[in-house]
Design a protein around this nucleic acid. Structure first.
Length: 269
DNA sequence: ATATCCACCTGGCGGC
DNA sequence: TGCCGCCAGGTGGATA
């Protein structure tokens, strides 16, 4: 479920419920996520929440002495619920708020994580990350320079979070299709023009998905806001073997870096 | 440094 | 129905 747009929409959704509230305590039912939930987080007591933000696919809950980092992995999601809501399967962690509500992390596959970053420190997992895709820091020049250094397929470069964060498998497929670039093209072979189109389509696709998610996933305090998502907008992802929406040719499906990759032989070069 | 592959975990689906 | 293999939105880490 979570690519960058879902994380951003989650961030926007939970922020009004968390910001300015007291984080009274943290209830951990399953400590073993991708890494064990750190002691510092387990021990939190009556900490005012100063802000809620996002970096890459991490949600940041900012406190006075540091920051709780949440990563949703492949199957995680967060919800704001009344405090007395019974916990169900895979409801691993609750952040109990002074408002009478709680923020609940549910993660079936447990690839997600809860981490701690002390005030003034940069968590090692965050310190190596590339620019945010929706900022000016991610631009044609940067992508082109990164591509010059790489012999691997452009799709892999696009999904490398040292190059740019937040471009997962769905949106890599989509953006490459819209930019008319074959996913398997060696990154080195991209022209400045190719990079310009690609940067533009990455930004456009992510922004559009956020806008859609924002309309379907508005209320995080309800039991479920499971989105109609962005699914109806997908042009290639999940459509291998089906006709290209643009030219009608049969879409190809291959594996690239062990990830499913779909493209149109005639629309992408 | 870079590229490749594996691992982590649960559940849903198609095929037999 | 039941069992089996395969696949899934991520990404750190081991290995060559």
């Amino acid at each position: 479920m979570p690519e960058l747009p879902e994380v951003e929409v989650s961030c926007l959704g939970i922020r009004p419920h968390l910001q300015g509230q007291l984080l009274q305590r943290v209830v951990v039912r399953q400590r073993q996520l991708r890494w064990p939930v750190p002691d510092e987080v387990m021990a939190l007591k009556d900490e005012p929440i100063q802000a809620v933000s996002r970096r890459a696919k991490y949600l940041l809950i900012e406190l006075a002495d540091g920051c709780v980092l949440l990563h949703l992995g492949m199957s995680g999601h967060v919800k704001v619920l009344p405090r007395d809501t019974p916990a169900g399967k895979h409801d691993h962690v609750d952040f109990v708020l002074g408002s009478g509500q709680l923020l609940r992390l549910n993660d079936t596959r447990r690839f997600g994580a809860v981490l701690w970053q002390g005030a003034g420190e940069a968590h090692v997992l965050l310190s190596q990350l590339g620019p945010e895709p929706l900022t000016e820091a991610f631009n044609t020049e940067l992508l082109w320079q990164q591509c010059q250094k790489r012999s691997s397929a452009i799709k892999l470069v696009l999904m490398d979070n040292k190059v740019v964060v937040g471009v997962g498998n769905i949106y890599a497929n989509e953006a490459l299709f819209k930019a008319g670039i074959l996913p398997s093209r060696p990154a080195k072979s991209l022209s400045v023009d190719d990079c310009e189109r690609l940067v533009q389509e990455v930004k456009h696709t992510l922004a559009q998905a956020i806008a859609q998610g924002g309309t379907t996933l508005r209320d995080f305090s309800q039991s479920d806001g499971k989105p109609g998502y962005f699914k109806q907008e997908l042009l290639v992802y999940g459509r291998g073997g089906l006709p290209c929406m643009r030219c009608g040719a049969q879409l190809e499906e291959i594996r690239l870096g062990q990830r499913s990759t779909v493209f149109c032989q005639s629309c992408q070069r």
